[in-house]
Design a protein around this nucleic acid. Structure first.
Lengths: 358, 358
DNA sequence: ACGGCTGAGTTTATCGATAAACATCGGCGG
DNA sequence: CCGCCGATGTTTATCGATAAACTCAGCCGT
């Protein structure tokens, strides 16, 4: 089918013997055109299958396009497996619906450096979810100089929505310490590709994502306060999904049977860790305590009554607030919002068993 | 912060005493510019924080923008609660990642008619998920005349990805009939706002979505073949979520205790129906059979071992194929793909109890 | 009778890029 | 020595709209 040349403001104007400005006004400025002319124009436009001004041209001229860009730190196809990210998107979309704004999901460029594209997104602003400043796509987004909200990232010059990860994590670890746990490991997710090394809380995590860094600091706050040496707390990195948690838990518990608790940096990891512990015959919470982070529903494969000890955060609310800052600015300048995460004690933590050591 | 005027091709060109075309070529046509000049240009661009040509302008000129629009039949914020829709998006995003394409999520306009906006999305094509042709946003999208793929919708002039809903549903109902069920109800989701009436298979469903219509036809195929009168099969409409399924089931079973099976048009409805049945003390599958459609994981609140009798369809694959048709066209013209849904017998259907009637 | 105002359109400039046609120049084959 | 070619830039037209400034009646009050 040979695609017919589409109608434009100009073609409609010349069809009708008026100027293209009048046609434009018929759509955008009805007050500036007599009702009679406007009706003629709209009727003719329908007849030639013209459904309004070309958005790209309009956007070029006006500098606005009615869409916001959303960038995730991870692959987009990963985000659609993660209940946290999905809830975050749900929050964003609820605001966009009300405002009639489109959402542009922008995959990160993961090509080889030499063939990197430019960031093609046509948007009025960005929401950056836990971004890395150094990533080329993020850099390009920031360079646009558009209104931008960062989520779970500290950027003084930008608007932000932040969660109190550090304090929440401190509460988790303090809880475990109070239960007598002295041998535990942290299961975290990697910055990009994980190295797989086992580290300890002594190591430097300033290169990690803001979220990971803050949570590590929270852990340190707790162990420091309790006088536990940082070097005693293992840190193990794995991909942020149930499988990753399961593998990490199985491996850790095999290498270090003396561990009595696993502190997971996400619920997905924690649910995986529960499965991994089960394969080694460890009883949760009797012989192993497990904690998570996020407060999502357990996956379908877990028993339903199970309540994970975790930090509940409202990802939907994060998305909503971020979108609101962007789409309903109440004032000039940047806005920062803190969202409280809540430590909840579930059924997966208990008094440390006596390991006979130390 | 007074937003500084941003650099453009032209400003960079005049800074450097070259023409703007050369700057454009430096980005898009390196072969047409000497390496020395190109390096000068890129270096200067970096210095003035220029991250490449303005996408809106480029898009206007070239007619391409590197994004595809995705439209759901439901509210966007609903889509982010539905495992089927999420999987569908995951499929789309996996292709877009590879192709470096952005995804524009377009909320439906649900405003009052007088204040309807134009469809502002700047895209190279559309994926329409189970669309209604009559919806204004869909109409505008189709009027653009861009490459378009419809999913779960029959449109001979467009590319499409279709599932064999009818045959699959026929298998479900035939299965129930073979188990001896003669009193059962269909629980479906509404076109937009449900009317809430109880109908029967005799009624006309041609106004419903393509998906609902096809599934109804499948049901009819089965009951007709078995000689069961269509009027004996109730049809109840409710919102497509667990709560809706629960309410509908509770209500149906209270009004019509003789029912021995509920045929739900989605797994979400079915899982809700299981909960609703439980509140009335009905045992599944002993005294009530329940079937679903989709093949998603049970929600966290259900017992994990539970295997629903359902039709498994691969929503992720649907998204992937749709995106592939759009982004990797292998030929001119339209393409249609059929995706097989698979009827799977689980633990929620069994021989009909003798109800003592008929 | 006259200046000002309002409504309805028109003219012109511009948004920021890409594309096609054209200019310039040094080298090179015949 | 001529003419052609490739490499490198430049000129000009154009994508499809919006915005601002302008024209021109007709009307109103004084």
């Amino acid at each position: 089918m040979a695609r017919a040349k589409r109608a434009t403001l100009k073609s409609i104007a010349s069809d009708l013997g008026v100027t293209h400005t009048s046609v434009s006004n018929a759509y955008n400025n009805p007050a500036k055109v007599s009702k009679a002319l406007r009706d003629r124009i709209i009727a003719h436009a329908r007849a030639v299958n013209y459904e309004g001004p070309n958005p790209a041209a309009r956007s070029l001229r006006t500098g606005r396009c009615g869409a916001i860009g959303v960038l995730f730190n991870d692959q987009l196809s990963y985000a659609f497996t993660d209940p946290h990210d999905i809830a975050f998107l749900r929050g964003i979309s609820s605001v966009c619906e009300d405002e009639g704004a489109n959402i542009v999901l922008i995959p990160l460029q993961n090509k080889r450096p030499e063939q990197r594209d430019q960031l093609a997104a046509i948007v009025d602003g960005f929401i950056l979810n836990a971004p890395y400043r150094s990533h080329p796509t993020i850099r390009q987004a920031l360079a646009r100089g558009l209104p931008t909200v960062v989520v779970d990232f500290d950027a003084p010059e930008l608007s932000s929505v932040l969660t109190n990860d550090r304090a929440a994590m401190q509460a988790v670890v303090a809880h475990l310490l109070a239960l007598g746990h002295r041998h535990f490991a942290i299961v975290t997710f990697p910055r990009e590709e994980g190295t797989g090394d086992i580290r300890s809380l002594e190591d430097d995590f300033s290169d990690e994502s803001y979220v990971v860094h803050e949570r590590m600091e929270g852990c340190r706050d707790a162990v420091d306060a309790a006088g536990v040496p940082r070097s005693a707390v293992l840190v193990c990195e794995t991909t942020n999904c149930e499988d990753g948690g399961q593998r990490a838990a199985a491996w850790l518990l095999r290498c270090r049977p003396e561990l009595t608790a696993l502190v997971c940096f996400s619920d997905r990891l924690a649910y995986g860790a529960l499965a991994g512990a089960a394969t080694l015959g460890r009883q949760v919470p009797a012989t192993l305590s497990v904690t998570g982070f996020d407060g999502i529903d357990p996956p379908g494969s877990m028993s339903p009554g199970l309540r994970l000890t975790t930090v509940r955060q409202n990802a939907c609310e994060k998305g909503r607030r971020a979108a609101e800052i962007l789409l309903r600015p109440d004032k000039e300048g940047t806005t920062s919002i803190a969202i409280e995460a809540e430590f909840v004690i579930g059924d997966t933590t208990a008094t440390a068993p006596d390991t006979g050591k130390k």
